[in-house]
Computed example of a mutant assay.
Amino acid sequence: METTTKLPLQVTATPAAVALIGKLRGKHGGLMFHQSGGCCDGSSPMCYPLGEFLVGESDVLLGEVDGTPFYIGRPQFEYWKHTQLILDVVPGRGGMFSLEGPEGVRFLIRSRVFQDDEIGALRAAGKI
C-alpha cells in the first residue's frame, strides 16, 4: 500500500500573528508580506498594503497567511527552501515601512526544518 505525504505549508503563522493581520487588515484593507535577505529592516518580514510592494521575477510566492500573500526573495528562498517559515509577533518596533510599526509590536520569522518526507513531497510538487 502506497502512503502519501500531505504537502506541508511553506509559511504559516501563530495565532498572535493572525490576530495582528486581522487588525491591520481592518485599518489598511488588503495586505501582503515580503521577506528578503537584506540587512536591517530587510531581514524582517515586511507587511504592506496589497500591491504597495512590487514583486517580480526575483520573488517567490511562498503561500498565504490568513488569506494574505507571503512573498520571499529568490536568493533567500534558496537558502530557506527546506524550512517552514512561521510568522510570529513580538513586542518591539517594526520595520520602518512595515504596517505594524505603530502597534508597538513587530513581525518576525521563526522556523523549523522540514522532515525528509515533507521535503520529498515538496520536491515532487515542484515547490522546491
Rank of each mutant, 00 (worst) to 15 (best):
G101P: 00
K81D: 10
L20S: 03
G63W: 06
A121M: 05
V60H: 05
S98T: 14
T5A: 08
E64L: 09
L50F: 10
P69T: 00
G94Y: 09
M96T: 15
A125W: 00
V55C: 11
G101A: 08
C39S: 15
A125D: 04
V60M: 05
I119R: 15
R123Y: 10
P15S: 11
V55L: 10
V90Q: 14
S44F: 09
P69A: 01
M1N: 14
C39R: 12
T4D: 04
L31P: 03
Y48R: 04
G104H: 07
V105K: 14
F77K: 09
F33H: 07
D117P: 00
V55R: 13
G92L: 02
L7I: 15
F33A: 03
R112A: 05
T3L: 15
G37T: 00
W80Q: 07
T12Q: 02
I21C: 01
G42N: 14
M1P: 09
C40L: 11
D116L: 02
C40R: 10
P49D: 00
G120L: 13
M1Q: 15
R123V: 15
E57Y: 03
Y48G: 02
D117H: 11
K6F: 08
G95N: 09
E78Y: 08
G29A: 02
I119K: 15
L122N: 14
Q115D: 14
Y71E: 12
V113M: 10
F114M: 14
F70G: 11
Y79W: 08
L24D: 06
G37H: 02
C47S: 12
P45R: 01
M96P: 06
L99P: 04
G101T: 08
M1Y: 06
K6Y: 05
V90P: 00
M46Q: 14
G101M: 12
G37E: 01
P49K: 10
E64R: 11
